[in-house]
Design a protein around this nucleic acid. Structure first.
Lengths: 146, 146
DNA sequence: TTTGGTTAGTTGTATAAACAACTATATGTC
DNA sequence: GACATATAGTTGTTTATACAACTAACCAAA
């Protein structure tokens, strides 16, 4: 069954992820305004470390859907900002375990608050059950393609 | 009304646009496999020129949600690939009008077919009315933030 | 213990995005 | 017409992504 649900302009929006780009831009602006010297991509790495500290770069790749070079460089930059530290694993010396610094721990609450605020602005006026359906559809899309 | 519809992991997916990244990657792979030497970003510019040829770089900015430097460089690269030509406007000599070459015109049918195919794969198993709701929610998100 | 394959991470290169600063042209007002 | 201001596009810089090629460490089988 081919489902040609998309008129041309809508096809374009879906492929380009217009909505998520708008969310990311708004979040970045809020970070800047708040004086958080952090890119969204860097934040997304910290996000997973706040959930579980001391995971490997490979685990960060899986969690953030990025390839290894991308994580290498994001960790490079986070290290320069003194927000994380690479510690090579005793158990497997190929692995780097990535640990948050004190400074990064302090950023969690504020930045997560800003992220929630941004999502609330994005979804203002959308009934909960429609948000739920949207989330489910996007999850299926991801599962279909992964 | 604050709508905290998001458990943490879902917040992350929404912000990062996991689904649209997956769509873009799949589309890029299909382009590569088909021997189309084209990035998704370049395709997105051609997309608007296929709808209307000879528009200005500024109009391309508005259509693609990119800033002026981004379009300058995308047009640079498309010109190197001999897919578009800059023609400075007679009416307003500040403006470049961007025209498709023969070669670019030939790419329309094939690449649009691949894009539709990709979306059909992405949305496989999702009922039409749920797709409709999802599109509407994403449009509201965009309108809320723009 | 050696060999061969796998996994973790890095480096090189090309493309792209965001922001700031810039040039050139146009336009509206006096 | 001259000046201030706005608009179209370019260039420089930093950050990020994707892919390929690479090194180092691990592991399993002979």
């Amino acid at each position: 069954m081919s489902n040609n649900q998309f008129r041309k302009g809508e096809l374009y929006s879906f492929i380009t992820g217009k909505a998520s780009i708008a969310i990311a831009r708004r979040l970045q602006k809020k970070f800047n305004t708040a004086g958080l010297n952090l890119t969204i991509e860097q934040w997304s790495v910290l996000y997973h470390l706040w959930k579980q500290d001391g995971i490997s770069q490979q685990e960060l790749c899986n969690a953030t859907f990025r390839d290894k070079p991308s994580i290498t460089r994001l960790v490079d930059n986070l290290e320069k900002l003194q927000l994380v530290k690479r510690v090579s694993s005793d158990a497997d010396r190929r692995m780097n375990l990535i640990y948050l610094t004190r400074q990064a721990q302090k950023l969690q609450e504020q930045s997560m608050g800003i992220a929630e605020e941004t999502l609330n602005e994005a979804l203002e006026g959308v009934p909960a059950e429609r948000i739920e359906i949207c989330k489910e559809v996007l999850q299926i899309v991801y599962d279909n393609l992964k």
